[in-house]
Design a protein around this nucleic acid. Structure first.
Lengths: 198, 198
DNA sequence: GCAGTAAACGGACTTCACCCCGCTTACATT
DNA sequence: AATGTAAGCGGGGTGAAGTCCGTTTACTGC
C-alpha cells in the first residue's frame, strides 16, 4: 500500500506520544488557553520546532487530541452494535449517530472548540469528514427521491455540529436549568423525522 | 431609549468612516490577507490603538464591513416587497430568505469568511443573529406542532450558513462547472419543503 | 470664551503562532 | 561495526494581534 513512505522513526512516534500526554496534563491542569506552542515545548522538554513538526499549527494539537478520543467513537459507528452500528434502519442509525455525536462533542467540548481554526475551511481535522461521509452514506440508503445528497449531507452535518461548535456559547451549553443534551438530541431526532417522512 | 449613552464624538465617527473606507480600498487592491491592524493604521494615517478601539479585533474590521453591506439586505427583509419582505406566506419567505442570504454570502464571501473568529462563539457580529431571529420568527408563523423552535432556528441557520462559511472551500464554491448558487438555493428550498410538509 | 471631564488617540510593549535552517540521530546498507 | 542519508530536532527570528497608559481633544456647563 505505502511502499513509498516509510514507517515513522522510533524517536518521532515516542515524542509524539509524549507531546500528546503532556498536552492532556496541561489541559486538565490549566484549560486549553494555557496550551501554547512554547508552553507545550517547555513542559515536554522538547523544542518548539518539534511541536510544529508534529502538529503544524496550534489547533493541530487539539485536532490530534480529538482524533485520539474519536477512535472509540468511530469503532462504535463502523462496527458496534445497532442502532449506532450496522444492523438498524438508516433512519434509526441517523438518529443514533446524532445522539452519539452530540454526546461526544459535549464531552470534549473544550478540545473540539479549540480544534477549530479560523483560517481553515472545514472544522476539526479528520473528525467532520467522518460525520459528513457517514451521514451521506445513510442518506443514500434512505431513498429520498431526486435530491442533491451531497449538499443535504453537508447541511445536516452543519445542523448537527453548528449549534455545539459555533452558535451556542459555553455558558449556554452549561445551562443546567434545561438539560442541553436532551434538548439537542430531541431536536436532532425531530429534524431527521421531518427530513425523512414525506 | 439610551439616555445613559451619549452620541459618539465627531472625530470618532469620522475616523471610523475613514478606517472603513481605507479597509475597502485595501481589500479591493490586495485582498483580505494583507489587511492587518498595523497596515490599516498606517494606510489610514491613524494610530494602531485607534483601530483597536473601533473594531476590537481583526475580524471585527470585517464584521463592520459586512454590517455595512448588510444594511440594504436587512431593509429588503424587513420592509421590502414579498416574498422576501412581508406579504408572502411564511414558507415562501423562508425560501426567499435563504436564497437572498446565499446570494449575499457568495457576493461577499471573502469578507464573510474573514469576519469569522475562531475564538468567538457565534460567527459574524450582528449578521447571524439576524438570520437566527428572522428564521425563528417565520418558523413561529408556520404552526409546526410542539417543536423546540429556538433550536430548530439555530439548526436551520447552521444549515444555511455552514456550507458557505465553513464546509465548502473557496475552490469548491468557485467551481464554475456546476452552478453553485443554484445548487445551494435548490438545496435550501428542498430542506424547507421537507421541514414544513408533514 | 473658559475650565473640567470623559472619551478618543497613539504608539511602545508583550505575547504568541509560525518560519527557517544548521545540527543531530535513527535506520538501512554493506 | 562503519558509513551515508533522510528524517527529525532545536531554538532564534519575524510579523502580527492585542494590551496599557500617558497624552490629546471634542463636548458640557458656566
Amino acid at each position: 500500500m505505502d511502499l513509498t513512505s516509510r514507517p515513522p522513526r522510533a524517536d518521532a512516534s515516542r515524542n509524539r506520544n509524549h507531546l500528546l500526554a503532556t498536552a492532556r496534563t496541561m489541559l486538565t491542569d490549566h484549560g486549553p488557553d494555557r496550551i501554547t506552542m512554547d508552553a507545550l515545548a517547555d513542559c515536554s522538554g522538547l523544542g518548539k520546532g518539534t511541536v510544529f513538526r508534529h502538529f503544524g499549527t496550534r489547533s493541530g494539537i487539539f485536532q490530534a487530541l480529538l482524533d485520539d478520543n474519536e477512535r472509540a467513537f468511530q469503532e462504535g459507528v463502523l462496527s458496534g452494535p445497532p442502532p449506532l452500528g450496522p444492523g438498524a434502519s438508516p433512519r434509526e442509525r441517523l438518529i443514533a449517530y446524532g445522539q452519539a455525536r452530540i454526546r461526544f462533542l459535549l464531552e470534549h467540548h473544550d478540545i473540539a472548540r479549540a480544534a477549530l481554526d479560523g483560517r481553515q475551511p472545514a472544522p476539526a481535522g479528520s473528525a467532520t469528514p467522518l460525520s459528513r461521509i457517514h451521514i451521506r452514506m445513510l442518506l443514500t440508503q434512505l431513498d429520498l427521491g431526486p435530491v442533491d445528497l451531497d449538499l443535504l449531507a453537508i447541511q445536516l452535518t452543519a445542523a448537527l455540529d453548528g449549534p455545539l461548535l459555533l452558535y451556542l456559547s459555553k455558558s449556554e451549553l452549561d445551562a443546567t436549568t434545561c438539560p442541553t443534551e436532551q434538548r439537542l438530541t430531541t431536536g436532532w431526532q425531530n429534524l431527521i423525522h421531518r427530513i425523512c417522512h414525506p
